[in-house]
Design a protein around this nucleic acid. Structure first.
Lengths: 339, 339
DNA sequence: TTATTTATTTAGAACGTTTAAGTACACAAC
DNA sequence: GTTGTGTACTTAAACGTTCTAAATAAATAA
């Protein structure tokens, strides 16, 4: 069931079959038709392995994410996959589980499959591993981190603007005691948001209260615990900004447990806009990270390098993406009478 | 940067390098060490394509799911991937988006990559496409649907028992007007749960009220709308069973909007136990589908066929998996005084 | 008609592995 | 010292494509 069998049946050479399959115009419509019929009759599926061995191109992009279980990623993966498949590329997804050792094995797998490019959507990546790719002229695109260079692009989300929008919104509503639940500060993405929070605080002339700032793990359980710590501290925030939606959802649980009402007594803002944010009680005001745009930009960055035939890698670009504030019911005016 | 270069550097033949890489015992520790050093020095990554072309094995399993965006799947994918990687197999994930045309392309991609087996975790699959695999002796494992046959296994979740547990729980709490929000009845998985609901109804001697039965789409928005339809109908259920958690979460939103309290005025039970169910307000009583067990069973089914060296495919088995009822705060005693 | 160009098609050498079959060598048994 | 028996290694033929260079056929020009 290989190309030879098809060639024999169609009465042509394997080269002609190959060209037909690949849509080359150097083949008569008549022969092409004959070949197609043979392919159909034999249920022939060309072997991808042999294909990329022969051609040097794998038609495969690597997509490295932290954890498919984090609701931020599935939509990103889906969008990236959709647009890739549309352009005849496939996608190999790899989870690092936030673990550097797994990252290493992901990189290894990518190399072994001879991927045409890699989108790295985790915020952490060792320089040493980046070199593995760039040394082999494999185009890369990062999210947020790194800087464009030869063969390296970046999709840059304006987190500072995002957090600023959330803060402006809260300040406008009259809030001044605003808590922040960060992600793991070892993660670049979490750090960026935290720093943006501090800047906003300063910009609005608000004081920084350590009791109102808690580090969590970007998961619901962490948000829950962090919120309890804040409430237990005695500091009475009228609003909370969380580093992602899961954290916010966990925090909401803690707030409910304490018998506080959202948003009457305490407002909360998330970050990401995962699907479920619209269905929490109350629905969650949050910053939407446009995953479709991010995925599209990442794909474009890689595809561009693929199309430029030159061996020498071009200097990558920055693709800028803006978050948007999604107003829902978890934020409301600061009500001093409750405090 | 190929095996020849490594062989030259280590002063051995390519065969020896190959054997070293594959951990054959037919190579002296001394030479193995020399080879390993050469591999290290040259940063050699063996080409997977060439490998599977040479060996006939791809070390790749296909995993077909409906939609990675459905929170049921990510954990399943992750578990399947983890156990596969542990056993030296990789995983190629494909989304069908519930679309038969995409299913076709998924199957094609699997064939082209010469996968060693396919786990089909969607409930719908055309016979014609199944034949594509079985015709080539590729082991298959299905979830819920189909029946074991040559090279075909099945992971069977006891949905009837699951729904029965939910119903028993509600009846015990004194509920008798129990609504049901089903998934798309075109889907086998949704139909099974619906039928189990009807059976439970009968078993408990409860009447079947069409107004209390609504079809939705297994997503939050559908659950929301379906719940509104039920509430608008005038029939006043004291409890609702939803076909999955997303549906339940959407329904909870509708219930809240109507100013009804959960569980005092209306109880609700979900199905799946997605991560967020623990963080809804109130937390959701639901049936846990053990995704890790399902993934493990699916992997085992495929791995078994891989290990048996015989060409003839063996008859597959059934792997039975039980759901468990997770009691949280969305269910409580039926309180007639409210009605 | 023949020469020239152009459009198809073919033969066959890559591509980078694996692996059966073969070779060389050490050691044991006779 | 021959013969046998392993063991460690090498040679070279697959595997199924792609793709270059060469061959052929067809079309056009002279």
């Amino acid at each position: 069931m290989n190309i030879k069998a098809v060639a024999r049946r169609a009465g042509v050479s394997t080269a002609t079959v190959s060209r037909t399959i690949n849509g080359s115009d150097k083949v008569t419509p008549k022969t092409a038709e004959r070949v197609r019929r043979a392919v159909e009759a034999l249920q022939f599926y060309p072997d991808t392995n042999a294909r990329s061995l022969g051609s040097g191109r794998s038609s495969l992009y690597g997509l490295i994410i932290s954890d498919i279980t984090n609701p931020f990623f599935p939509e990103l993966v889906k969008s990236f996959e959709d647009i890739s498949v549309e352009h005849g590329q496939e996608v190999l997804v790899a989870n690092t589980n936030y673990d550097p050792a797994r990252m290493e094995s992901c990189v290894t797998r990518m190399m072994q499959r001879k991927v045409d490019g890699v989108a790295i959507m985790t915020s952490e990546m060792e320089d040493r591993l980046i070199k593995v790719f760039s040394h082999r002229n494999i185009p890369l695109v990062f999210m947020d981190v790194g800087a464009p260079g030869p063969g390296v692009s970046r999709v840059r989300v304006d987190h500072a603007a995002g957090v600023a929008m959330a803060m402006d919104h809260l300040v406008e509503l009259g809030h001044s005691k605003i808590a922040f639940i960060s992600g793991p500060l070892g993660l670049f993405s979490a750090r960026t948001r935290f720093e943006a929070f501090l800047q906003s605080l300063e910009r609005h002339g608000l004081q920084r209260d350590p009791a109102l700032i808690q580090e969590a793990n970007h998961r619901a359980d962490g948000g829950h615990e962090a919120m309890l710590r804040i409430l237990n501290s005695g500091a009475k925030p009228t609003a909370v900004v969380a580093s992602n939606d899961l954290t916010a959802i966990g925090a909401m649980g803690a707030i409910h447990e304490r018998g506080l009402r959202i948003p009457e007594e305490i407002s909360i803002v998330g970050y990401d806009d995962i699907q479920l944010s619209a269905y929490t009680q109350p629905s969650l005001t949050t910053l939407r990270l446009p995953r479709i745009e991010i995925a599209t930009a990442a794909f474009r960055a890689l595809y561009k390098s693929l199309q430029s035939q030159t061996k020498k890698p071009q200097i990558g670009e920055d693709y800028d993406v803006q978050p948007t504030l999604i107003l829902r019911r978890s934020t409301g005016p600061a009500n001093r009478s409750h405090r």
